[in-house]
Design a binder for these strands. Sequence first.
DNA 1: CATTTTTATTGAACCGTTTCAATAGTAATT
DNA 2: AATTACTATTGAAACGGTTCAATAAAAATG
Lengths: 343, 343
Amino acid sequence: MTTIRDIASAAGVSIGTVSNYLNDPQLLAEETRKKIHGKIQELDYHPSAAARSLKSRQTLRIGLVPIIHPEDYRSTDPGDNAFLELLAGLNSIAAENGYAVLISAAPNYAQELKTYERLIGEGQVDGVVLMGIRSQDERLKLLTSRHFPFVAFGQSDISNDYPYVDVDGAAGIQMALRYLVELGHQKIAYITPPEGLMCTRQRWEGYVRGMEESHLEIYKEYVIEGGFNEKDGHISTELLLDLPEPPTAIITANDICAFGVMRTLQMRSLQAGKDISVIGFDDISLADHWQPSLTTIAQPFRKIGFELMQSLFSVISGENLLPQTMVEPKLVVRQSTGPMNNK
Amino acid sequence: MTTIRDIASAAGVSIGTVSNYLNDPQLLAEETRKKIHGKIQELDYHPSAAARSLKSRQTLRIGLVPIIHPEDYRSTDPGDNAFLELLAGLNSIAAENGYAVLISAAPNYAQELKTYERLIGEGQVDGVVLMGIRSQDERLKLLTSRHFPFVAFGQSDISNDYPYVDVDGAAGIQMALRYLVELGHQKIAYITPPEGLMCTRQRWEGYVRGMEESHLEIYKEYVIEGGFNEKDGHISTELLLDLPEPPTAIITANDICAFGVMRTLQMRSLQAGKDISVIGFDDISLADHWQPSLTTIAQPFRKIGFELMQSLFSVISGENLLPQTMVEPKLVVRQSTGPMNNK
DNA sequence: CATTTTTATTGAACCGTTTCAATAGTAATT
DNA sequence: AATTACTATTGAAACGGTTCAATAAAAATG
């Protein structure tokens, strides 16, 4: 192992000078700089991360604490696809800034907070990224009270004075509505996410705004409190189709729910995209491969990862202690939507 | 920040004793142990990871270096699903042993080796996990020559005297064959992965052994050098169906290829699972949602993650410097296979 | 009871950096 | 020429643990 002392003596300078070379090279005379550079290459020197962070109090690491599901599970959870893209986003910005991402798993929810406490207590990381914000999220409280830099993906239902990045669900729904109206639809049903979630409230606003924008009235029969599962889609669709005047388009809580809608249409010999238009939310990988493929409001997870990491850096550097970003979703048009069919 | 000295003076002992408490509590007298424990709780003490690893030379971290694809991409790459499950496996064993996983991304292949060199040079991790082993993989050479603990997922086509975990592709194919024969199939075609890969060689062995086992002869017309894409499945299937005596079952290189096979069958108005049985490899999430759902040979990625991390620990501890593990795949039966159809 | 062994604790050195006041040398200013 | 202002470099003191030879006290042995 070669240390800073080896470099110093090989280059005939003091260790302080080598340290300066490492941290602020322009402090040195051109000649000295070259000499040190040469020796570093020659001796293949890498400064010890441990020593460095012991003294300087920064680790160049960002923490992430996933909960590992106990069993081997193959989920259609959008979380899956999302998580990878998000991780890619986080990592790429992190790497650009010389940071790495430390994943310290918690075996279950009970151990979650303790894992965060260890992570920050031991000084393993300079900041953390929170995913899957829950209502009354204890992690928000913990990190806020400890004044530890963090950023969350998603807003909470409690106070929102913490750094976050969120997807503008309202804009997404509004976008979908605008598109459907362009296609001639007017009877547009909306299957909402479960009551009580932040995104439910957000998206509802989008629905209201979008309908107003197109001067359409909201019929309460067309708004169904649904959920994220295929079953929710199924049940809600049955209700909608049994109305005296069924809708010609359905916006759903997420893609999985939309699949439930489409299966129900099929059972009734209706064709999605022709008889009834269906729009999902998320754009999971299945959406593209479904038959017919699903038009959906895509969440740009990679970009969210970028934003999260950039926000976190601005918190850490003190440049902006309360960055709050909204990311715009994107409408991906596929086969499950089409012009209104006047039979 | 409370340090070991704070605890020591609060408990009225020396810092050496507190250190002993931390690392080997049974060295202490019951009474002392309690006293220190109390103060640690009271002062919410967490030993500094940096100081600890500076002196002890272990980081309690394992490194992983993914290459971040430059663009936002939504892939059907089994790698995706695989990567997450694998990561879950790695993390859960790591966490059990007090370890965390450090992800240090490389922006591209050109920078990959440098990233590894930094990671181990700076002493950021105690070992690394290698994924996606390539032929003549430079990483194997680097890590071996530096005597740095590592374990690879997959064998290489060069020398194999390094620690690895691999999936027994031969056993998988043999399993599939046995199942097809049970269903009455005899004309069983095999679309191979591309020539030159390790897995191709492995699986070919499985095909040969499986056919021999059932006393079936191998017809070279039934063996097609294919690949991992939908197109490979398509082209190969056309060839197979145009034979004077087309096969009644097809084993493919992976699920994506199998989808290509199934689409081709559909084009010719043949029904997978009735007219011709199709078996994939990997069990990506789409396999279950395809119409008809795909029978496939599943790679247990979670378990592979377990094995990888366990192997790595045994290398690090010196307990076994050359662990080499084969993991058995599992046949997942769905709708794309069925009894032979004697028309 | 003296001696040896075992058990519990200590304290100082060390791990490899960063940091910063101090210093020497050089250039600019009066 | 004397003073002041920079620039480049130094050296020692941290940072917060671990390690280990040394020591003290208690227990076992002859």
